[in-house]
Structure formats: structure tokens, C-alpha cells
Write a protein that binds this DNA or RNA. Structure first.
Lengths: 197, 197
DNA sequence: ACCTGAACACCGTTCAAGT
DNA sequence: ACCTGAACACCGTTCAAGT
């Protein structure tokens, strides 16, 4: 890439990050180009779609979450690792208002530039969930896709101005539903076999 | 209202209902006007904003939910009433894709035409929750606003194509988190109140 | 290679002119 | 009273022309 092109690209990313933090992911691309002092067509040359731009901005954070999951898996108890990772996931989304909807769409759209990063995050969460389940500390009737959907839903609550004040409390309620109150043993299984599957 | 105006209004509502069912709440207003064979300005004369149009379409359904809550309060057990009402709330939103976001915004925007209907629905849910709490069947650390936010979140999951397959399962998980496992009647609880409704 | 103004087909809003 | 075409200021997309 030519030096001037690279400079444009990096400047556009910085300006876009600011604009999206301020106005959410639906901010006008024309505005971003104006604020970056380039033509709109230049922005679209570097990032052919809004999602391509978002992908570049979000990928760093998503990969951070994936890496963080690995560290937690190594150094924390199954429950602590799962819960604090989930909390991180929900927390960071407040920075880019509306990003959650793009992520939810990307997880099953293999054409999406965000697809790979979303799948990786989901897999990281699934590993933490499996670990907690193996320790008898998490309900066994859910999988990584369920966990991902719950994280998306809680993040969406944090994204809605009117619901956001309840987000923390609802997180705790949902977290308590994921965790089992007693460690694994026959009696626990017996207590309610119907909720499996 | 003049007869021709009333006819236009009703025809617009019918066409808008169809269009929104097909394409979601972000469907072009110009398209609706075209399909109704009136000028766009005529649509905007009857419904000055998109939200005003949505309000008229959604109000019927929201008031139905409120009325249904009253009936359940009278004729069903606290747990059955709460769970089956919640299920109804989450289920109907699938008809108008995207409506959930408008409702979430309206609940705290007193300027919104949807505001009153949303507040009424939230109050109806709060009554059912209070009743279940009084019977010792629901956790006491949440209120109507928490319940409303949970319903919104679960509805949003049903709204996202990639997450929708998990919606039913997540509903059951969240419902089980709202209900307390320690009942006044141990035998009833053993039967599994979570799957009612 | 890379940039960009201009044309394009959309959108919701407004309003003067028509019946 | 009610309707509406037309003008307006936006949007994202595309591309021929410039450096």
C-alpha cells in the first residue's frame, strides 16, 4: 500500500472510531469522510461497506476477548472465569452503540467480514462454559450458541438507553440461572432432569 | 373526518400492516404510500411520523396483552399466569420485526405516541410479578421494570434471525431464574411449574 | 496506485397549489 | 377539508476523469 493511502486509512479509522463512539454505528459515512478530510469515495475504497469499516474497528476488541478467555481458563476457577468473561463481553459493547446487532447478524453470515471474529468469540465462551459444566458448576442444558445469544441479549439491554440502568441487575439474574447452585452429583441431576436439552 | 379521508386512513393502515409484516418496521414509507395508491404526503398527513403509524398498528396488540394479563390474574395460578403471559409477550413481537426497539425507546420517552401503551403493558406485567412474589413463587429482587427489560431482551433475540432458534430455550432458562424453586407447596413444585403455559 | 467530483437512485420532510 | 406533485436536504453506490 502506498504511504499516502496507508495514512488515509489509518486516519479514517481513528475518525470513524470517534464518530461511532459519539453517534453509534449508524453514523453517516459521508460525515466520517468529511471529518477525515477525504472524499466519500476514498472512504469506500478502503472500506467498501459499513460493515467492513466496523469489522476493522471491532476485530481488535473481539480478539482481545478471545485472548482474555484463554487466560481466564488457565488462571481462574471455572465459575469466576465464566462470569467475569461474560461481564467483560457485555461491558465493552457499550462503547459502540448498535454494534451488537451487526454481531448478531454476522455470527451466521459467512459472507460478513465480522463472521470469523464472532465465531471465535463464541467458541471461546463455549470453552469456558464447557469447563464450568465439567466441574458441575453450570447447567448442562445449554451450549455455546445459547451463551452467545444470552450475551447478545444482555448487551442489547445495555445498548437501549431506557433499559440500560437494569443491565447489571439482569446480568446477575441471568448469570445465576446459568450457574448451578450445587456441585455435580446424582441428587442434583435427579432434582430436575426435564430441563435438559 | 371526511369519508374519503377515513377510507384513506384505514386503507393505509391495512397496507402498512402487510408491508411491515413482510419487511419489518423500517420499510420505506414511500413504498407504503405507493402500495396504498396515495401520495406520500397523504400518508404523512395521517401519520406525521413513522412512530405514529407504528403506534396505531401496535396499540391494539399491546392493549390486548394488558387485557389478557387481567384475565390471567383472575383465572390462573400466580406462576401459570406470569409465565404464560410472558410467553405471549415474547411471541407476538415476531410479527413486526424491529418493533421491539421502538417499544424500548417509547417506555421512557413521554413524547412518544407509543409511550402510554408501553407503560400500561409494563404495569400489567408488574401486577403479575407482584402476585407471584406474594405467593412466594417469584424472586423478590426484581420489579416490573426488570421484568419489562427481560421481555424486551428475549423478544429481541426472537427478532434476530441468527439467534431466533434459541429464543424458546432461553425463555425457559430466564423464566426458571425468575421463579423461585422454594414454593409454598412442595408437591406442586416437584411437578415442575416451569413448563406450564 | 490512489483519489475524487459528479451523477444516480433512494430516503423522509415540507409546502404551495389544486379539488 | 383533504390531497398531492415538486423541491429539498439527506443517504450509500458507482464510475469516469484526474494526479
Amino acid at each position: 500500500m502506498r504511504a499516502d493511502a496507508r495514512k488515509n486509512r489509518e486516519h479514517l479509522l481513528a475518525v470513524a472510531g470517534t464518530a461511532i463512539t459519539e453517534q453509534g454505528v449508524d453514523v453517516s459515512l459521508r460525515d466520517i469522510a468529511r471529518r477525515a478530510d477525504v472524499g466519500l469515495a476514498t472512504l469506500l475504497r478502503h472500506f467498501p461497506t459499513r460493515e467492513a469499516l466496523l469489522d476493522t474497528l471491532l476485530r481488535t476488541k473481539l480478539d482481545e476477548l478471545t485472548a482474555n478467555a484463554g487466560a481466564l481458563e488457565t488462571f481462574s476457577s471455572p465459575v469466576d472465569a465464566l462470569v467475569s468473561w461474560l461481564r467483560d463481553c457485555v461491558a465493552w459493547t457499550t462503547e459502540y452503540q448498535g454494534a451488537i446487532v451487526l454481531m448478531a447478524a454476522a455470527i451466521e453470515d459467512t459472507e460478513s467480514a465480522l463472521h470469523a471474529s464472532c465465531v471465535t468469540v463464541r467458541a471461546a465462551g463455549a470453552r469456558l462454559l464447557t469447563r464450568a459444566q465439567a466441574a458441575g458448576m453450570a447447567r448442562t442444558d445449554m451450549d455455546g450458541a445459547d451463551l452467545f445469544a444470552l450475551v447478545m441479549a444482555l448487551s442489547w439491554v445495555g445498548d437501549q438507553r431506557s433499559l440500560a440502568p437494569r443491565a447489571d441487575h439482569l446480568f446477575n439474574i441471568v448469570a445465576s440461572a446459568i450457574l448451578t447452585s450445587a456441585p455435580s452429583n446424582a441428587a442434583e441431576e435427579e432434582r430436575d432432569p426435564r430441563t435438559h436439552g
